[in-house]
Design a protein around this nucleic acid. Structure first.
Length: 346
DNA sequence: AACTTATTCAACCGCGGACAC
DNA sequence: CGTGTCCGCGGTTGAATAAGT
């Protein structure tokens, strides 16, 4: 019964790979493929490594067409948009960026992008606070003005960083959801450019509007056929719908609780993810839209969706190509959000 | 130059679903 | 159908390196 044991952990080398090990693994896989069995592979080629380790080394480093470092601004945008929409599904995000590995993207997000975004947030809040203080001083309201409170802070749910305090407790009124407008503004911003010299967006100011992720990814794939995809990506996209029900992507019910306290993500980012109502068109399956998924796959949950089908789901036609279109989209999203949140109330 | 602190990223670990027996 | 292994994923760790004092 069962299969042979994975590997003799006591007899397995750990740590960094030597060039000789790399060469052995690479040349073998290039000649023979993985043989569909990573566990047996190291023994076949005389490597004292765990199969898992070989797989990781191949996928993240030795595989052809791998890009390391030097993320473009466009890639930043794609990563941020997808993170906002689907969270830390790095393999799915990696599938949108040919040549990038999930590990690379995860590292890039954790070490740079996240800080970049939080830095922008901090900058903006600082500027807002300074201008608010100036206004109050002009009015001669020096009393109490040095202590910012919720009235003077226009964005109570985004306390000045880097205060990574405990998560804001839910009240019966769910204030974080009522503050949709401010979060929406942030999302608009996050959907925009991420360069450090970015103009900050203030109320009434013109928007430097977000990329259209659907057209962007489509463009990328027009230049990168499927065989250029990371080998993991196609597997990754065989995702049964039920995996995504009742996760943090579901805006209602216990799904919301699942993200709470999960990993070390700063509260601000968690809230950003929580509060995002912007679903990517064609990624319905990520949100547990059983109807949408079942209509496409024609089966109950548990059935895999093939790459061909999936790619048409992931790369829909552009929904908005200009600012007005996107503005309309945002309004529709808000209506949809309100309908979801407060059914029947207009 | 020496030391400390911060950053980066390759690799490991553990988990859960899929699948073989 | 139950059990055990394989596979892929996301989170975390820790060594190497860079930057700061």
């Amino acid at each position: 019964m069962g299969r042979a044991p994975c590997c003799d952990k006591a007899n397995v080398k750990k740590g960094p790979w030597s060039p000789e090990e790399d060469a052995k693994l690479k040349s073998y896989i290039e000649k023979h493929g993985t043989g569909g069995n990573w566990i047996a592979l190291p023994q076949k080629i005389g490597l004292k490594r765990c199969g898992k380790s070989c797989r990781l080394r191949w996928l993240n480093y030795l595989r052809p067409n791998i890009k390391h470092g030097g993320f473009s601004e466009e890639e930043d945008n794609i990563i941020c948009n997808l993170y906002i929409s689907i969270g830390s599904r790095w393999s799915i995000i990696a599938a949108q960026l040919p040549g990038r590995t999930d590990n690379d993207i995860k590292n890039y997000w954790n070490t740079r992008l996240k800080k970049k975004l939080l830095g922008k947030q901090r900058k903006e809040q600082h500027a807002r606070r300074v201008s608010s203080l100036k206004q109050e001083m002009r009015k001669g309201m020096s009393e109490n003005s040095m202590v910012p409170n919720q009235e003077s802070n226009q964005n109570p749910y985004w306390p000045e960083l880097p205060v990574l305090a405990a998560p804001i407790p839910y009240s019966n009124q769910e204030p974080r959801l009522n503050d949709h407008a401010s979060i929406r503004k942030l999302l608009i911003k996050l959907g925009g450019r991420f360069s450090d010299d970015d103009q900050m967006i203030h109320e009434g100011a013109s928007l430097d509007f977000p990329i259209d992720i659907s057209s962007t990814t489509q463009q990328i794939y027009e230049h990168h056929p499927v065989d250029m995809l990371p080998s993991a990506s196609t597997d990754t996209l065989n995702i049964p719908s039920y995996q995504f029900t009742n996760t943090q992507y579901n805006m209602e019910g216990e799904g919301l609780d699942m993200l709470q306290g999960q990993n070390s993500l700063p509260v601000e980012i968690e809230q950003m993810v929580y509060s995002n109502t912007q679903r990517l068109d064609g990624l319905e399956f990520l949100y547990g839209d059983e109807l949408a998924v079942n209509n496409r796959s024609g089966t109950a949950c548990g059935e895999s969706v093939g790459w061909g089908e999936m790619s048409s789901m992931v790369y829909p036609p552009p929904v908005a190509s200009n600012y007005e279109g996107l503005q309309q989209g945002m309004m529709l999203q808000e209506c949809a959000f309100n309908e979801l949140r407060y059914p029947g109330v207009q």
